[in-house]
Amino acid sequence: MDLIIYGLGRWLHIGSGILWIGLLWYFNFVQVPGLKGAAADGTAAGITKHIAPRALELFRWASLSTVLFGALILGKQLPSALLFANKAYYPIGIGAWLGIIMFLNVWGLIWPNQKKILNLYQYATNPASDEVKNKARRIAFLASRTNTMLSIPMLFFMVASGGLFRRAFFGG
């Protein structure tokens, strides 16, 4: 049982996390700056129609599986981590809270607004107006940038919550 939870669970948590944060960084460091140039020469449709929707699907489900496998690994220690029960839980508690905030950002702000921007799901047959899309674009952009900012401390506290890294940074 331990092998499944701590071995397979940890493997899948990290794999999902790489997919999630990798795509987040792709959106922020590659796609958004690249779209400016693509819009200028009329090639943006290739990205917004064929690449962004596929990347967003993987992105949002990877965020869910990262959080679920993270909760699985913590198991009975989850409440202690989230409530900072004692100092041993401080690094993982901060990392977990940052991950949860980022996950809520994905499902509550980024995904609903990207659906409007890219005409996905219910907006495929009934597209949002340009005014609504412009507002959605700004909200999705800032939520995505907020997640990029939060990913830096989140990653630090995730890797700092165990092993030699933890001892180096927090002693004991």
Partner: peptide, 30 residues
């Protein structure tokens, strides 16, 4: 004042500052 999240470097610097603030906070707390 411009929103620092509008630029990539502003976002990264904010992330590093937040890391430092949180790290020092829990380092001195524990």
């Amino acid at each position: 004042m411009k929103n620092p999240l509008d630029s990539i470097w502003g976002t990264i610097i904010c992330g590093l500052l937040l890391t430092s603030v949180l790290y020092n906070f829990i380092y001195f707390l524990s």
